[in-house]
Each structure stands twice: as structure tokens, then as C-alpha cells.
């Protein structure tokens, strides 16, 4: 009973989301809002601005390096938390 109810509600949410999906910008279209001046600058100037050929590396360690610091912190937090938990 609980399972059926859950499945039904999930299907309802799924249909709702499918309606949302058909409204989204078309997949792979170069005109979608995502492809604005932000990636253009990354792609056109990152070699001269950062010296890295790989644009993704240029982003994670230069343009948005602060995110990566957060990421490093998550790893360190996870390990500190784990050691603390397994020790107590």
C-alpha cells in the first residue's frame, strides 16, 4: 500500500517534470542561454590568461580555484570526520 502510494506519487512528479523537460532549452543547441559570454571567454582566452590547454583544468584551478579549495576542504573534512568517528 505504502509502496503503491509512493510509486504513484513518484509517477505524478515524473509527469510534471517531463512537462518541465519539454520546455527546457533544446539539448545541444548552440543558442541555449548557457552558451553566453562566460564559456566564450574561457574557451578563447584561457590559454593566454592561464597557460593551460585544458579549459576544464584552467577553470578548476584558476578561474574558480576557490571552489577547488572548498573541494579540498570537503575531502579533509570527510577524513577528519571519519577518523574521529571510528575512534570514538
Amino acid at each position: 500500500m505504502k509502496l503503491v502510494f509512493g510509486a504513484l506519487s513518484l509517477i505524478a512528479i515524473g509527469i510534471l517534470l517531463l512537462i518541465v523537460v519539454q520546455e527546457m532549452p533544446t539539448f545541444g543547441s548552440p543558442d541555449s542561454p548557457v552558451h553566453n559570454e562566460v564559456p566564450t571567454r574561457y574557451l578563447e582566452h584561457s590559454v593566454e590568461e592561464t597557460g593551460a590547454l585544458n579549459a576544464v583544468t584552467a577553470i578548476i584551478t584558476d578561474y574558480r580555484a576557490f571552489d577547488t579549495l572548498g573541494e579540498v576542504t570537503v575531502l579533509l573534512t570527510a577524513i577528519a570526520a571519519m577518523v574521529a568517528i571510528l575512534r570514538c
Binding site: 572548498g70 576542504t73 570537503v74 574521529a84
Partner: peptide
């Protein structure tokens, strides 16, 4: 995410 991991750890460390 940092806050959820560290907060959960601060709870469980008891």
C-alpha cells in the same frame, strides 16, 4: 556540503 558533513560529524562524535 562542507557544513552538512562537518555538522553531522560534530553530532556523531559524541
Amino acid at each position: 556540503e562542507i557544513s552538512s558533513v562537518s555538522a553531522a560529524a560534530l553530532v556523531a562524535v559524541n
